[in-house]
Design a protein around this nucleic acid. Structure first.
Length: 459
DNA sequence: TCTGGGGTCCTAGGACCC
DNA sequence: TCTGGGGTCCTAGGACCC
């Protein structure tokens, strides 16, 4: 049975982090810009000019430094406060066109335009007059959808300064492929959008897309497909779905179906609540003693609790891990971690902090130079769900209501002060004042949009 | 000083049960 | 005598995404 073809779009910001940096520095408009990961470790975003210089994604900065200096590449440390705020502006602009949006990541959002083109009975005009195959649209609709996408892209650019590409298709996987085609062919076509509804056009486009560029085919699987003669997305789409499942897994079967125009991943609804949340960092310098290791772990635990509260979630369990430098082959290696179930789901800072340190003390082993640690909240639940559950279970006798109330108040005060005076204004002594582990961030731009003192000046 | 951080889903295999 | 078949739950590991 064939259901009505949906019009699914993907807004994909071009070189997002690099573009955000350029918005506030017009003088960098034509310069290569790269943005580094935490700890100034490796390249995570490259402007078009930087890509033209063949700087690879993921390149460690220490390998790039001399080249960047010689070629006038602008190098920035990641500034997530800025990118998060710019991302919200892009989504707000998109929301002026449609309510049906699923923010997929900091630089991508899916949306649905089906309702724009259907009449009051939910049908497309002229749909009966054309013999439509799976994933196809009536010609008139097809020809109107792409200009609308162009308009959305132009509006986002105008209102936020961020350049975006938009792909349209009957499924998420095809919308994603279309956005890539729009990006790859922008110079030649001069358009920021592409659509894959027409069967012949779709086949031609998929034939030009290498198999490793398919959404859902990564670094490990791509060589396997190539070895069996599947070199393009079109080759891939032509494999029988059942065969694909037998030789690979249900994920690859779904990808085949989506490339054929069959809707598998719904466009806008992803109702499942988040299941885990973590804070982890590599350290600027290795640390060895338990005493020193407690500071970053306490800091991550504290940040994690605040992040849980911000999303109105609680954690049912915690996992704490520590690791040595995996790139240092000469140093003895250790990866240790352990989980602990909380007596009751919580997002209070004092409790998460104390329990995290308890786990750390249990897994700590002396004699290693630790380079990284992380604290993970597991089995996260919405606060309301946890609230409702309280009445179903016995209260934990080891912790009375008074203590919980006090912890809640401490957490609320933390949030208020840090929101008013800036993140990190107050913190627990166990987080430490001297932070040898603090990651490097040597080239960070101002918080142009979230800090009054950093507003750009017009002169 | 020299290589990021935060997520999701699926599968295989073991333990255990009838 | 001689080792079925099916189900569930859990965990570790691998794959993917940005």
């Amino acid at each position: 049975m064939q259901t009505r073809t949906r019009i699914i779009g993907l807004v994909d910001c071009d070189s997002f982090f690099a573009s955000c940096e350029k918005v506030f520095r017009p003088d960098w408009r034509d310069r290569p810009v790269v943005v580094l990961s935490n700890n100034d470790g490796c390249v995570v975003a490259r402007s078009a000019e930087a890509k033209a210089l063949q700087i690879p994604m993921g390149e460690p900065y220490f390998k790039l430094r001399d080249f960047a200096r010689a070629r006038g590449v602008v190098v920035r440390s990641a500034n997530y406060a800025l990118y998060g705020d710019m991302s919200a502006r892009v989504v707000e602009t998109l929301a002026t066109f449609t309510d049906e949006i699923d923010v997929y990541s900091i630089d991508e959002a899916f949306f649905d335009l089906t309702h724009f083109f259907c009449d009051s009975t939910g049908r497309y005009p002229h749909e009966e007059e054309e013999a439509l195959e799976l994933g196809e649209l009536p010609r008139a609709v097809r020809e109107a959808a792409e200009p609308l996408a162009e308009k959305i892209a132009a509006t986002i650019r105008k209102w936020t300064g961020v350049p975006v590409s938009i792909g349209l298709g009957p499924t998420r996987t095809l919308a994603k492929a279309a956005s890539r085609i729009a990006k790859d062919n922008y110079a030649r076509r001069g358009r920021k959008c592409a659509a894959l509804f027409d069967r012949a056009e779709r086949d031609a486009a998929l034939a030009s897309l290498p198999v490793e560029k398919i959404w859902g085919v990564g670094r490990r699987l791509a060589p396997r497909f190539q070895n069996s003669g599947l070199r393009t997305a079109l080759d891939f789409a032509r494999v029988d779905p059942t065969t694909m499942r037998r030789f690979h897994s249900i994920n690859q079967e779904r990808t085949v179906r989506e490339l054929r125009g069959e809707l598998i991943f719904d466009a806008v609804s992803r109702p499942e609540p988040q299941q885990s949340m973590q804070i982890s960092r590599s350290f600027g310098e290795t640390v060895s003693s338990l005493d020193e290791l407690e500071k970053p772990v306490a800091t991550f635990a504290s940040k994690l609790a605040a992040k849980l509260r911000a999303r109105r979630l609680v954690a049912s369990a915690l996992y704490v891990y520590v690791a040595t430098d995996r790139f240092n082959a000469k140093a003895p290696q250790r990866n240790g971690g352990s989980a602990i179930t909380l007596s009751r789901p919580t997002n209070s800072t004092p409790e998460i902090l104390a329990r995290s340190l308890q786990v750390l003390r249990a897994i700590y082993e002396p004699g290693f130079r630790y380079k990284k640690a992380g604290v993970v909240a597991l089995e996260t639940l919405p606060e309301e769900a946890a609230q409702a559950r309280r009445y179903l279970f016995e209260l934990d006798p080891t912790q009375n209501e008074e203590t919980r109330e006090r912890d809640r108040n401490v957490s609320l005060t933390l949030d208020r002060v840090n929101s008013k005076f800036g993140a990190g204004s107050i913190f627990f002594a166990s987080e430490g004042v001297e932070r040898a582990w603090r990651p490097f961030s040597n080239f960070v731009s101002p918080q142009y949009t979230t800090d009054w003192d950093a507003l750009p000046r017009a002169s």
